[in-house]
C-alpha cells in the first residue's frame, strides 16, 4: 500500500510541469525512503531524475516498493482539476492498475477524488557514475532560464565556457551572435568553483526544456567536466531534487 499526502497541489503541478516536456510517460518508483523517477527523453540525449524524500510529504506510507507507470499528459489533466492550495493525497494498492488522487480544499469543505489508470511501462534504468565536476556553478534559476531563452534566438547550439573568473554562454548563428558572461557576485548569487576550465557545446532546446523546473527552486546548480554530460540540478527545498543530464555536442 502506498499513500502520500502533500499540503499543496501546486508543488506537484510544478514537478509534473518540470517533467512533461521531456517525458510522455514514466515510472515513479516508491519505497519507504521516498519516491524516485529516472527516464531519458525519446532521443536518448537527455535524462531527468526526480528524487523526493519521504519527509517531504505531510504523510507518507509505503509498506512495500511499488512502481507506478504514469502518463504525464493524463496526470496533468487531473491536476488541472485541483486548486493549487488544495491538499493532495496519492494512493495506490499493491499491484494496483490505477492510482487514486484525492484533493481537499484548504477549508476542507470540498473533496474530489480521481482515479488514473496506470501503465505497464518497460523502463530501463541507467547507472549514473559519480562524477567529479571540474566546474560547479550556482546561480539564480531565473537567470539561467533567461539566458537559455535569450540564446535560443540565435542558434540551436549553446557553448558554455567556464573559467576561474566567469561563466560565458554563447550562441552563434546566421542572424548574429550572443555572448553572456556572469562573474561571481559579492552577494553570492552566482558562485563558481573551478578546478579546470571547461568549454562544452549543447543543444539549446534541451536546456530550455530543463528550465521548466524554474518555479521549483530559487537556485540552480550546473556541473561541467570535459567529455561528460552536463548536470543541471534544481533542489526541491531540502528534501530532494530534479536533476537533468544532457549529452554534449562534439566536433566532427
Amino acid at each position: 500500500m502506498f499513500e502520500a499526502r502533500l499540503s499543496s497541489t501546486l508543488t506537484l503541478k510544478k514537478i509534473v510541469d518540470a517533467l512533461r516536456d521531456i517525458l510522455n510517460q514514466s515510472t515513479l518508483d516508491c519505497s519507504d525512503t521516498g519516491i524516485q523517477l529516472q527516464a531519458m527523453d525519446n532521443s536518448h540525449v537527455s535524462l531527468v531524475c526526480l528524487c523526493l524524500r519521504s519527509d517531504y510529504f505531510e504523510k507518507y506510507k509505503c509498506s512495500r516498493n511499488v512502481s507506478l507507470g504514469l502518463d504525464l499528459k493524463s496526470l496533468t489533466k487531473v491536476l488541472k482539476c485541483a486548486n493549487g492550495d488544495d491538499a493532495v493525497t496519492i494512493k495506490a494498492a499493491d499491484k494496483a492498475d490505477k492510482i487514486e488522487l484525492s484533493f481537499e480544499s484548504a477549508g476542507k469543505e470540498r473533496t474530489a477524488d480521481y482515479e488514473l489508470r496506470l501503465l505497464n511501462l518497460d523502463q530501463e534504468h541507467l547507472a549514473i557514475p559519480e562524477t567529479e565536476y571540474s566546474c560547479v556553478i550556482h546561480m539564480p534559476a531565473s537567470e539561467f532560464a533567461r539566458i537559455c531563452r535569450d540564446l535560443a534566438v540565435f542558434s540551436e547550439s549553446v557553448v558554455i565556457a567556464c573559467s576561474k573568473n566567469c561563466i560565458k554562454f554563447s550562441a552563434n548563428g546566421e542572424m548574429g551572435s550572443a555572448n553572456i558572461k556572469l562573474s561571481q557576485t559579492s552577494k553570492a548569487e552566482v558562485t563558481l568553483q573551478v578546478d579546470e576550465p571547461v568549454t562544452l557545446s549543447f543543444a539549446g532546446r534541451y536546456l530550455n526544456t530543463f528550465t521548466r523546473a524554474t518555479p521549483l527552486s530559487e537556485k540552480v546548480k550546473i556541473g561541467m567536466a570535459a567529455d561528460v554530460p552536463l548536470l543541471v540540478e534544481y533542489p526541491i527545498e531540502d528534501y530532494g531534487y530534479i536533476r537533468y543530464y544532457l549529452a554534449p555536442k562534439v566536433d566532427d
Binding site: 536518448h44 535524462l47 547550439s157 557545446s201 554530460p229 549529452a247 555536442k249
Partner: peptide
C-alpha cells in the same frame, strides 16, 4: 559541424 552524442555512451543500463 557538430554531432549530438547520445547519453547511452556515458551511462550504462543496469
Amino acid at each position: 559541424s557538430q554531432t549530438q552524442v547520445r547519453l547511452d555512451s556515458f551511462f550504462k543500463a543496469l
